[in-house]
Amino acid sequence: MTIVATDSPAAPARRAFTLRGYVPLFPPFAVLLLFFAVPIGMMIGISVQDPKTSQFSMASYQRFLTDGLIIAGLFRTILMSGLVAICVTVMAYPVAYFLARSTSRWRAVVFALAIAPELAGVVLRTYGWLIILEDRGFVNDALIWLGFVSSPLPLAKNLFGVVVGLTHVVLPFGILALLTSIQGIDPNIEKAAQILGASRLSVIRHILLPLSIPGIVSSLLISFTMAASAYATPALLGGARFKVLATMIFEQIMFYINWPMAAVMAIVLLVLMLAITFAGGRVETRLHKKLNI
């Protein structure tokens, strides 16, 4: 082990660490302080001001808790995000499983198809769903032509449309979360069970699903948080009647010019995100311990 000696030239450099090492951090820290930390602090400050007199007041928090429309918006946000989380995870699972296990040359194609929409941005995809789902869109035209329905089904401008659009937006992230988890499962366990006579179904039920629970949890988590904080898709596919926290925040700033109310809504959304991420993180670590991964 004489190689160890060659380590020594680097050692003095480490010992000689001084405050100069922090200098490169100054520009990124300055930018984040000025345009992130200070604004967030100011937002919290404004949330406890009266909208008219700027005096200290908890009025906006009170209104958040008592205004039926706002509470409805909060529950709509949670319902929408929960549905998106479930749809994304259910749809991402087969794709992730295929990507984790396949060795065929189609793997690259499927991977590209699964990830590429992310480059297209939310506007393009939302526009695509609008022309597919609107009253005179694609699906309704086809259904009427086939004679299944006589008048167009309400597919856009409601919960259904938003869930479809958001599922499409979030799906690649669900696939990546599950892919990492399934890749970590030893394929030999599945093979062993099959050799011992387990049916495909019991392999899925007793091996694949239990072992991929951490991946399922992280897919649910990332989908929920992405859906709850999405703005453009609910705004465009939800229409005027389907309001969620994100679109209500925008209205408070742009139309009602009520900063304290917007700040309170933003803080509630932020706390919701942090709580879910924290709780999900706890569940994940516990699962990892339990599964010994």
Binding site: T225, I253, A262, A263, L269
Partner: peptide
């Protein structure tokens, strides 16, 4: 330090947007 550099990721974009617009307008 890394946690601080990554901290904006924990905040939804719409919240960052509100914070920045309030900051620029009231400062």
């Amino acid at each position: 330090i890394m946690a601080f550099l990554l901290s904006p990721l924990a905040v939804p974009q719409i919240v960052k947007g509100v914070a920045i617009v309030i900051f620029l307008s009231s400062a």
